[in-house]
Design a protein around this nucleic acid. Structure first.
Length: 849
RNA sequence: GCGAAAGUGGCGGAAUUGGCAGACGCGCCAGACUUAGGAUCUGGUACCGAGAGGUGUGGGGGUUCGAGUCCCCCCUUUCGCACCA
């Protein structure tokens, strides 16, 4: 140990030792309880940014904590190395995507090692290597076998800037998730994965994880699947044998329907208009809507527009004849592409009816709470002609609804759907918003879809023993939107596995979200050449105990990986439904944008980035890590501060200096042993030590890292205040200081592991902390709680005095000592004591008159 | 527009969940040591007031002996969703 804290020196020393000893390698067969600590794997863009540092510092704190507690901790890392930027680099700068990616990985791996994150590097994986993407292809074939991977022509979301297809998730809001370019629609033949088969489970299984995931993520998951319960109802077309099927969640309002409204893309529309004089007008209108939407303009921003088709339909409940309209606000993609319009009880229908002066009829009346218990009756008159100014969308009681009048919405919805089913014009139904996952990409830098097209045998899956379908070394990177692989004859031309004749390979590659849907299973068995992973090995490690990453992945990645896990369960690879027990979505790291008052995520283009390497060089990895953990709660935005990190260095330096001052005396365990009484100051320090152990143990479990660091600082301040001189300290004082300092060093290690290891060694424990496990200190419960309580005494609610009491003071004793207090007696003298409120361990309040 | 969450010093944020508001850190002020200080150390730092004391957790009301914390209304901010029938 040097007298002065030189971060670089001790960081190099310990990083080297960790690498040599392999202490972070997690053995698969181990009697200790496992803990799988996982951070979202990074895209190898070339450089670590502060968001990464924060993510990995959080994960590492937890990994260390669990390790020191005696768990067998798996803490792996890898690279999400397929994807657009590598290909963009190829297009723009003519570099090979593979070389570019490998260089980036090499550089970022170095940065991670300089940060000293305790990864098991022996398990490192990268998605772009054939031994990884082979299994993407394997899974794809498994899904194909089960009918979960299929091809269809579809209108896809197309990003004109990146010249590629985007999934629904990636084009949410009509803009590209990566470059914010407005998305266009195009017709292409595409591969899809049938995530909709799992829609119900993706909602239902949320209850298995609701205690471990943030509420807002669960809500977004659930919203994305978009389950709605309702009913299908068939409206027969007048003078025809055709029917228009609508989906509604409010079948109870059906007597209020004033029209049936269809989407312009509805396939039935052309048939209905056969021979109608309005046909050209309506087709022109439908075309207009299609054009609007193809231009990527958001529905919802448009004013409602519609056209009466002249077709008539019959309300199967009331027998009423209703006009059929086409309108821009009905989406083909959801439900059946047709709705019943009930303006009195739906905002959109109301707006539409107002614009086109369609009749509005109230069929639901509000009910009061008393009426819910009693016979339901409407509170407002059931006057159908009454003018309605707004739609009333709450549940209520039915009026103007034939035999159903007087029933509550909840009851009517159930009964009416059953009635429709019994009479053959509908049924209860559940629909989902989620659509199948389009995984085809017209890209080079991805896992090739393992399919072959043969003129004779048609579409043939690549046999399992021919995997992987290896990406060629290079291709023409034109950026025109054609699959670059189509221009590589050696790749395209192959033989048909069935007839051995000439055949062509599929030239699409897979969405990179495929790679990240199951990567954390590959860590468990990363060099397995015979399978994606050994299910028996996986059983020992999974599910993931703690997953940490940015909330930008709260929808896409997490919904895909949940889907993938359920599929793996169905093919017998895993035996649970949900892959992640606890999830933490950490906040962004932001910095002030130069010349403004705005705080934005660090980025190159904004010029507000902070280089982790520079921070490590100036302040040391430990200080950088300590600062990001201390500066804000993990889920909050973290506003970068250059002076803040200096505070962290200062703290580490003070701790270092303190240990330097004591280390010779403390390392010598052969001196006089404590035999006498502890001084009052020593007892105070002991109490603080044990309180801190208790607090940090509990805070770390809940990932309250900022308050853990604060508690460390408090303990340090307390040790500083304990003004003993190492040269002359009594055996008792040495004991107390040793206990305090050793605890401090261990508790500090998850936040600043290099300093922790160095100081632990300096205190006389050769070889560092990981030599003897477990090491995490356990608080003495007697000492951890306050020795004495200072209980406030109030008179008529005002604080008037305090009384010192033992922690286990009885209510009666507390009351007695409060009433005996001099100041209190002076106050209550001459007044009547009305009552005395005693809250044990908390307070006494005396009410007088 | 709909939905959710949140508003505490100059700043990031604490507060054992209804019990001494402002822990810890940054910044700032003063002092010490210094040729020097953007190093280090010591002390101070919610607001008003010379003081005793008073006031304070976005605003207004309420429940309670007691409210940052619970309830109602309003304001503001942030984040989600955005014609999903």
């Amino acid at each position: 140990m040097d007298e002065k804290y030189f971060p670089e020196q001790i960081e190099n020393k310990w990083q080297q030792r960790w690498a040599e000893s392999g202490v972070f390698q997690a053995p698969t067969d181990d009697p200790r309880e496992k803990f799988y600590c996982l951070e979202m794997l990074p895209y190898p863009s070339g450089f670590l940014h502060m968001g990464h540092v924060r993510n990995y510092a959080i994960g590492d704190a937890l990994a260390w904590f669990k390790r020191l507690q005696g768990f067998n901790v798996l803490h792996p890392i890898g690279w999400d190395s397929f994807g657009q930027p590598a290909e963009q680099a190829a297009i723009k700068r003519g570099v090979n995507p593979r070389d570019w990616t490998e260089q980036n990985i090499a550089h970022m791996r170095g940065q991670l090692k300089r940060l000293g994150i305790s990864y098991d590097w022996s398990r490192e994986i990268a998605a772009h290597r054939p031994d990884y993407y082979k299994w993407d292809q394997w899974f794809f074939l498994k899904m194909f076998e089960r009918g979960l991977a299929y091809k269809k022509v579809s209108q896809v979301n197309w990003c004109p800037k990146e010249q590629t297809v985007l999934s629904n998730e990636q084009s949410s809001g009509g803009i590209c998730w990566r470059c914010s370019t407005p998305v266009e629609k195009r017709d292409l033949e595409q591969w899809f994965l049938k995530i909709t088969d799992y829609a119900e489970q993706l909602v239902a299984d949320i209850k298995q994880i609701e205690d471990g995931w943030p509420d807002k993520v669960l809500k977004r998951q659930s919203d994305w699947v978009g389950r709605s319960e309702g009913a299908y109802v068939d409206f027969p077309v007048k003078d025809s044998d055709k029917k228009i099927r609508v989906f509604t969640t409010r079948i109870d309002t059906i007597y209020g329907a004033n029209a049936v409204v269809m989407s312009a893309e509805h396939p039935l529309l052309a048939e209905l208009l056969e021979g109608s004089s309005l046909k050209p007008d309506i087709e022109a209108f439908a075309q207009k809507i299609r054009t609007q939407r193809a231009a990527g303009r958001e529905v919802g921003e448009e004013e409602k527009e519609g056209l009466n088709t002249g077709v008539l339909a019959i309300n199967p409940f009331s027998g009423e004849v209703l006009p059929v309209w086409v309108a821009n606000y009905v989406l083909m993609e959801y439900g059946t592409g047709a709705v019943m319009s009930v303006p009195a009880h739906d905002d959109r229908d109301f707006e539409f009816a107002q614009k086109y002066s369609l009749p509005i009829r109230q069929v639901i009346a509000p009910v009061t709470h008393q009426q819910l218990d009693a016979e339901p009756t409407p509170t407002t008159g059931g006057d159908a002609s009454a003018e309605i100014k707004h739609s009333f969308t709450d549940y209520g009681v039915l009026i103007n609804s034939g035999d159903w009048g007087g029933k509550l919405s909840e009851v009517a919805m159930r009964e009416m759907a059953e009635h429709a089913k019994t009479n053959g014009f509908g049924e209860p139904a559940v629909t989902y918003r989620i659509r199948d996952w389009g995984v085809s990409r017209q890209r080079f830098w991805g896992a090739p879809v393992p399919m072959i097209y043969c003129d004779k045998d048609g579409m043939v899956p690549v046999p399992y023993d021919q995997l992987p379908v290896v990406l060629p070394q290079t291709a023409a990177f034109t950026g025109t939107g054609e699959s670059p692989l189509a221009g590589v004859p050696e790749f395209v031309n192959t033989t048909c596995p069935q007839c051995q004749g000439p055949a062509r390979r599929e030239t699409d590659t897979m969405d990179t979200f495929v790679d990240s849907s199951w990567y954390f299973f590959r860590y468990l068995d990363p060099r397995n050449e015979g399978e994606a992973f050994d299910p028996n090995v996986a059983k020992q490690w999974t599910p993931v105990d703690q997953y940490i990453g940015g909330d930008s992945h709260a929808v896409m990645h997490l919904i895909y990986t949940r889907f993938w896990t359920k599929f793996m369960r169905d093919i017998g690879l895993v035996n649970f439904d949900e892959p992640v027990k606890r999830l933490l979505t950490q906040g962004m790291v932001t910095n002030r944008v130069e010349g403004t008052d705005e705080w934005k995520a660090m980025s190159k283009t904004l010029g507000n980035g902070v280089d982790p390497d520079q921070m490590i060089q100036i302040f040391g990895a430990d200080a950088a890590r300590l600062f990001v953990l201390f500066a804000a709660p993990v889920e909050n935005e973290l506003r970068w501060s250059d002076t803040g990190i200096e505070g962290s260095v200062r703290f580490l330096r003070r701790v270092y200096t303190m240990v330097w001052k004591w280390h010779e005396r403390l390392a010598d365990r052969g001196g006089p042993q404590p035999a006498g009484e502890f001084s009052a100051e020593a007892r105070t320090l002991r109490r603080k030590t044990h309180q801190t152990i208790a607090k940090i143990t509990s805070d770390l479990t809940q990932l309250h890292l900022n308050t853990s660091v604060a508690a460390l600082m408090e303990l340090f301040n307390q040790i500083s205040d304990f003004n003993a001189d190492p040269a002359t300290a009594s055996a008792e004082d040495v004991f107390v200081v040793r206990e305090a300092l050793e605890s401090l060093v261990i508790l500090l290690t998850p936040f600043a592991p290099h300093v922790g290891e160095e100081l632990w060694e300096a205190l006389g424990h050769a070889g560092g902390l990981l030599k003897e496990l477990p090491r995490w200190p356990v608080a003495d419960p007697e000492l951890a709680r306050r020795e004495e309580l200072e209980i406030p005494i109030q008179v008529n609610g005002k604080l008037r005095s305090r009384v010192i009491a033992a922690p286990d003071v009885s209510e009666d004793d507390l009351r007695a000592s409060a009433l005996a207090d001099e100041r209190v007696r002076a106050l209550i003298d001459g007044h009547e004591v009305v009552k005395v409120i005693v809250v044990p361990r908390r307070l006494v309040n005396i009410v007088i008159r």
